[in-house]
Simulated scan of single mutants.
Amino acid sequence: MPASAPVPAQVVLFDGFDPLDVVGIYEVLHAGALVGAPIAPELVSGEGPRTVVSGTPGITLEAGAALDPDRPGYVVVPGAVGPVESADDDADTIPVLLARFAQSAAMPLVRRALDNPDVTVATVCGGSVALALAGLLEGRTAVTNAMGNDLLEATGVRVADARVVDDGDLLSAGGVTSGLDLGLYVLEREAGPRVARSVESIFEFERRGTVWADLGLEPRPL
């Protein structure tokens, strides 16, 4: 049988992004492709090809194309990095960076991706906060870094107590290192557990916790 065409995974860069949010899941998906998974990660931005400055001094990445919400596959939205709060009103704190991203050219494209039944949007860490600030997650179930879960709830998001949350066409992961867990879950969805386990072995990393999904019995309170 002919090999399946690779599923694109467009990882969205924005000014102030967290490099580990991006590189963690990107490398997991790339390693999956090396061992046979039909998936192809790529770096994009809402503005098209450009050099994108991260929130970590000295680290930039190149977006090779504009985010295309009409391409079937995955759109991965990372969070930001910086101080959580500052006495300087003009400081690029994480909340400021995420709010700026929520108002950027990328967000209408992410909205279209969420409306596309052939696209799954996946967020890492503060990526879900940016989408929530843009009004895209009301009524959905998601998670973010533990420091941002109250903000998610304030925007009408149901926060699940899990490291990775599967809400159908919306996947989300908690703090920054959970991007590795999210990438492995995507590999399992696309290529099965043997490929995901192979990449776990390559990275010497094991996924943590059970992926939350709105399935099965409702647990009784103890």
Rank of each mutant, 00 (worst) to 15 (best):
L131Y: 07
L131Q: 14
L131G: 09
A132L: 09
A132R: 01
L133C: 05
L133Y: 07
L133G: 13
A134S: 08
A134N: 11
A134F: 06
A134P: 12
G135A: 11
G135Y: 08
G135V: 12
G135E: 14
L136Y: 06
L136H: 08
L136S: 05
L137N: 09
E138A: 14
E138N: 03
E138Y: 02
G139P: 02
G139V: 10
R140H: 05
R140M: 00
R140Q: 06
R140L: 04
T141R: 08
T141V: 06
T141D: 01
A142R: 06
A142H: 00
A142N: 07
V143A: 06
V143C: 09
V143L: 01
V143T: 15
V143K: 08
V143D: 10
T144A: 15
T144M: 01
T144G: 13
N145P: 06
N145F: 00
A146G: 15
A146E: 15
A146S: 15
M147N: 15
G148K: 04
G148S: 12
G148L: 05
N149S: 10
N149G: 10
D150C: 12
D150I: 04
D150V: 14
D150M: 05
L151Y: 09
L151W: 13
L151V: 15
L152N: 02
L152I: 00
L152Y: 06
L152H: 01
E153K: 04
E153D: 03
A154Q: 13
A154G: 03
T155I: 06
T155P: 08
T155D: 11
G156R: 10
G156D: 14
G156S: 06
G156N: 14
G156E: 10
V157W: 05
V157Y: 00
V157Q: 08
R158S: 10
R158M: 08
R158F: 02
V159P: 05
V159H: 07
V159T: 02
A160M: 10
A160K: 11
D161L: 07
D161H: 13
D161M: 01
R163P: 03
R163S: 06
R163T: 11
R163I: 03
V164G: 00
V164E: 07
V164T: 14
V164H: 06
V164A: 11
V165F: 03
V165N: 06
V165P: 00
D166V: 02
D166C: 02
D167M: 02
D167R: 02
D167N: 04
G168M: 10
G168K: 02
